[in-house]
């Protein structure tokens, strides 16, 4: 348990630091992420540019902050899309049960058969690349896992007596789903969403790396990687290494954080009821 705690705490610290730096990017750099300075191309780290410059003379540190901003916001926004979609779909499917459930789940099976990266590539190659498009494409291709998990939880939750009691009191079905079933799934939803942010960031970088994600003039971690791959043979290792390291550390931190969350929320033990008790105890001690 203590091993989990240390790793989780470190992950959360890493994520918080990154979030602060990325959100407050102008505070940490005075340079323009898209500012081309052809007199200062391919500078080594140090020498006035903290992490060096790329082949167009743009400051890597600045681009890393602004690119991280884009990548993280794509990660969070697309997870928001996929969570809303997945939770709604899964809750309806699980609550309805019977043939509705069967049809909805077979649709998900079919969608999961297609590699999501392939769908993303096809859609992205047909539309103009933009931030919103990337968010929507990632969101709409990654909601199926969430939906499956929520459905299974709802399937068992809807048999609990308080649902019957709510029905017997005349509570509308939508209210039961929204107010009783979905909140009970929240440990699952939170953990899945956190894992999803990591995946979404990876998807975004992959898409951008392939030139189908964020438009090339905008900095993003994926764009920086592809920009760097031509220069690496010329010895400019700093161009791909820093964005690469940022991607790895972000995704790893998110993965460990979600692992820790899973333990904190006691997903495997008692679920949300124990969580409420624990929370009450903590708040009482704090008071």
């Amino acid at each position: 348990m203590s091993k989990y705690k240390t790793v989780t705490v470190i992950s959360f610290i890493v994520l918080t630091v990154m979030a602060v730096m990325v959100i407050g990017a102008p505070l940490f750099t005075a340079k323009d992420p898209t500012g081309v300075e052809l007199t200062k191309t391919l500078r080594q780290p140090g020498q006035g540019n903290l992490l060096g410059t790329d082949e167009m003379g743009r400051d890597i540190w600045t681009r890393l902050l602004y690119g991280g901003r884009v990548s993280l916001s794509v990660g969070v926004a697309s997870v928001a899309v996929s969570t809303v979609l997945g939770v709604a779909y899964g809750a309806i499917s699980g609550y309805a049960g019977g043939w509705v459930d069967r049809v909805l789940m077979r649709i998900i099976d079919a969608l999961l058969c297609l590699p999501s990266m392939l769908i993303m590539l096809v859609i992205q190659s047909m539309t103009r690349p933009s931030l919103t498009n990337v968010v929507l494409v990632i969101g709409f291709t990654t909601w199926m896992q969430m939906s499956r998990l929520v459905r299974t939880e709802v399937l068992s939750l809807k048999e609990r007596e308080f649902v019957l009691a709510a029905l017997a009191a005349g509570t509308p079905v939508w209210k039961i789903i929204l107010r009783h079933l979905v909140p009970h799934c929240s440990p699952t939803i939170i953990v899945m969403a956190t894992v999803g942010v990591g995946h979404a960031i990876l998807s975004e970088t992959s898409l951008s790396f392939l030139g189908l994600g964020i438009p090339p003039h905008q900095p993003s971690l994926g764009n920086m990687l592809i920009g760097g791959q031509n220069q690496i043979l010329a010895g400019a290792w700093w161009i791909p290494v820093f964005p690469g390291a940022m991607i790895i550390s972000t995704v790893l931190a998110i993965t460990f954080a979600s692992d820790g969350l899973q333990h904190i929320l006691m997903l495997r033990n008692a679920g949300i009821e124990e969580g409420v008790k624990k929370w009450l105890k903590i708040s009482k001690e704090a008071a």
């Binding site: 308080f162 709510a166 017997a168 949300i272 409420v276």
Partner: peptide
């Protein structure tokens, strides 16, 4: 209206 057998399970524990 209906009153159920077990008042523990007929309330939603998180509200």
């Amino acid at each position: 209206s209906m009153v159920f057998q077990d008042p523990m399970t007929s309330f939603d524990p998180v509200y």
